[in-house]
């Protein structure tokens, strides 16, 4: 491939008919799904982790704990793509809701299961003596969890959590299965129009790579800041 043909390929794939817009629009969709799914995942994961550790520590919340256990088993036991397809074609079959919203819900519920285990390991990584010290001062179980355990637990899980966000962002690339035009699908559409695969897919890959690099940077700076406050 010489320089001339590279240039022609580039023009064909990105400039003609404003095809670059498939990538930018796809990128926007990918970011939207990732962001909101991550938020749903944080909320779900946090709640599930609280229920599970409360059950482990006190024996309370039996039923809630069983429900959480079932949730983790199902979500971690089946592929996220299958979950997405079931949600779109089975659960939401009769109510045609927005595809992006479907994807956000599917990826959010999926990520929640993994984040739950991350948060739980974080809470468990705080020595039991911390809970006892809090309780011995007169703090209730809840107060101790919030003022003593959680701040330490969250600090411990930042690397694993960022890892999960990176994985989540890349996993959203299967959203094309429900004909959602995310970044990957955008590249795919260009290929189907131009019959040239190299440029669109490499461009898509590079954009994911840049996004991951940015996320990694953010993670490092958060970690550095937390370290400073603890010295």
């Amino acid at each position: 491939m010489n320089l001339q043909s590279l240039r022609e390929e580039f023009v064909l794939n990105f400039i003609e008919d404003n095809r670059w817009q498939y990538l930018t629009r796809g990128l926007a969709t990918t970011l939207k799904i990732t962001l909101f799914a991550a938020i749903i995942g944080i909320v779900l994961g946090f709640l599930v982790a609280i229920v599970r550790t409360t059950h482990e520590n006190t024996g309370k919340a039996k039923i809630a704990n069983a429900i959480c256990g079932l949730y983790l088993t199902i979500i971690r036991g089946t592929p996220v793509l299958v979950q997405l397809l079931i949600l779109y074609f089975v659960i939401f079959a009769s109510v045609r809701i927005d595809k992006t919203l479907t994807a956000i819900i599917a990826f959010g519920i999926n990520s929640g299961a993994y984040q739950a285990e991350i948060f739980r390991s974080g809470i468990q990584s705080v020595p039991r003596g911390q809970l006892e010290a809090g309780r011995s001062l007169g703090f209730s179980y809840k107060q101790t969890i919030w003022t003593v355990i959680m701040p330490q637990a969250i600090r411990n899980v930042i690397p694993a959590l960022c890892n999960e966000f990176i994985a989540l962002m890349k996993e959203t690339s299967i959203a094309g299965y429900i004909a959602l035009e995310d970044l990957t699908k955008g590249g795919d559409i260009i290929r189907s129009r131009t019959y040239s695969a190299f440029m669109p897919y490499i461009a898509v890959a590079l954009i994911y790579l840049v996004l991951v690099l940015i996320l990694t940077r953010v993670e490092k700076s958060i970690e550095r800041r937390l370290k400073k406050s603890e010295r």
Binding site: G129, A133, R135, S136, L137, G138, P151, R155, S229, E230
Partner: peptide, 16 residues
């Protein structure tokens, strides 16, 4: 418990 102070073998100060 507020009226019963406790000191542990491992100190258990809050590190954060």
């Amino acid at each position: 418990r507020q009226k019963m102070g406790m000191v542990f073998q491992q100190f258990n100060l809050f590190p954060h």
